[in-house]
């Protein structure tokens, strides 16, 4: 019987056609939905090998990994009527393949719809905030509010948004030049201030130094005068203590010394003949 050879070939061909129809391999990175003539039967969220009815059921796979929804940069109006170019992106993943299949079908379409939703929520949010808040303080708060705002809407597409972030918030090109002018003026102001502060510090320091120098000298002069006064006082007291012993003798002795000093060679004096000094000129005996 030679029919086995053809049978074998038929079996192989059959297997080659049917096996892929029966088995569905869902990867770690995928979600899948099994549909029967377009009618969703079940959704598959974990990876592995699955079996379906061949030819009747078909499997549609979706990306399970975290998706990037990158919105284009847009010029938005803030609550204080200023314009900012804001570039935002959202991250989210398909969590409900059935909903996703029914409402969106492809990641490409999901991307444009999510971006639209995020953009409109962002526009609404930005319109309520001041430019300065968007630039600095409230950025994270705005991001969280946009995220919480789009979340329920996007959830209806079977997608869970986990993060919305402002990638860039820049001044429009038209404003940039006036920003530069403002920056220049501000720098000029700072430079002027620095130089003036330098002059201030200089003047102050020199004045302080001069004052201190005068203080040091006058303090020394004061102490010097006090010391000299004390010296005079000490001298007086030392003299007095000593001379008090015999004031009369001091007067006598000191007067003699004074004679020695002020009677110099061209002094002329007149002495009476009966002075004690000449007592013995007249007679050798003392007269009284």
């Amino acid at each position: 019987m030679r029919i086995f050879a053809p049978l074998l070939i038929i079996a192989l061909v059959f297997a080659a056609i049917v096996l892929p129809q029966v088995f569905v391999v869902v990867d770690e990175t995928e979600l899948a939905i099994i549909t029967r003539f377009g009618d969703p039967q079940r959704s598959i969220r974990s990876p592995g090998l699955y079996v379906k009815t061949p030819f009747i059921d078909s499997a549609t796979k979706f990306e399970k990994r975290l998706l990037l929804f990158d919105a284009p940069a847009e010029s938005l109006l803030t609550s204080d009527k200023k314009r900012l170019i804001i570039d935002v992106y959202a991250r989210g993943r398909i969590t409900d393949p059935l909903l996703f299949f029914q409402r969106v079908r492809s990641v490409l379409e999901a991307r444009s719809r999510v971006i639209d939703i995020v953009a409109s929520e962002l526009r609404r949010e930005i319109a309520e905030d001041l430019q300065s808040d968007i630039i600095s303080g409230k950025r994270e708060e705005i991001e969280n509010q946009v995220r919480d705002g789009v979340r329920p809407i996007v959830a209806e597409l079977g997608i869970d948004i986990i993060d919305v972030r402002i990638k860039r918030a820049d001044f429009p090109q038209a404003i940039a030049s006036s920003v530069y002018e403002r920056m220049k003026a501000e720098r000029q102001r700072i430079a002027d201030r620095e130089r003036a502060e330098g002059a201030e510090a200089d003047l102050q320091k020199r004045a302080e130094v001069d004052r201190e120098s005068i203080e040091i000298r006058s303090e020394a002069q004061k102490n010097s005068d006090i010391i000299r006064g004390e010296a005079e006082a000490s001298a007086i007291s030392i003299f007095a203590e000593s001379l008090e012993q015999d004031p009369e003798f001091y007067r006598f002795q000191r007067t003699l010394e004074a004679y020695r000093i002020f009677m110099t060679d061209n002094t002329t004096i007149v002495l009476p003949a009966d002075s004690d000094l000449f007592e013995f000129l007249k007679s050798p005996s003392a007269s009284n």
Binding site: L256, E257, M263, T264, D265, V270, L271, P272, A273, L277
Partner: peptide
């Protein structure tokens, strides 16, 4: 002391001795 001082002082200077009488 007096005399010694006079000795020292008087030699170089011009003196007039007048008689008080």
């Amino acid at each position: 002391l007096y005399l010694e001082a006079m000795e020292d002082v008087l030699p170089g200077i011009t003196k007039y001795i007048v008689d008080s009488a």
